[in-house]
Amino acid sequence: MTEQRARLVASVTGLHFAALQVGAFLAVESVSSSAWSTYAALSAAWLGGTLVGLWVAVPPRAAVIGGVLAFEGLVAFTQLAPWSRGLFVLGVAAVGAGGLWAGGFFTRAARRRATEGVFLHENNGFVLGLVATPFAFAFGGRTTLAALPLVTCLALFRLDETFKLDRSTPA
């Protein structure tokens, strides 16, 4: 992978993480609870998922797809069963699943000795996602919120050819 492409992959990965994290927060808070405890639980789930992903080897493709599927399930559940008590639990699980690759991605970068600039470019993408996701939600609703991680996921699979090689290789 060229250096330029590696930067692009890191940025799209950051955008993908923001789409999952911010998107899940908005989905849960819209039809469940906006209490601080909800925010804290979701934040802890993301950070916890990231920690697990850092230390436990997970197949990259499975981690990315698992995170996206969990998110899509969460958004669908907010439409099918708004105000359900299960929404909070599902939200925590989905956010935790999304966080797995947030850890796995950095371990994989380290394994490839490609840590130079990885935090910078991932964070730049995250900043973009931090703004883009609420705008997508506000103007496109939960449909657009659900579409965003699908788009970033497909972009990642196209941009990062190593996903094909890594299909069964742990991060």
């Binding site: 601080w36 920690l51 950095f106 380290a110």
Partner: peptide, 25 residues
Amino acid sequence: DPVEGMRRSYGAELVGFMLGLGLTQ
């Protein structure tokens, strides 16, 4: 070892961040 460096360093910062969120609360 960059993998060890990433796991220990980023892991420590994440744990600290969680602790910071809790203390701030």
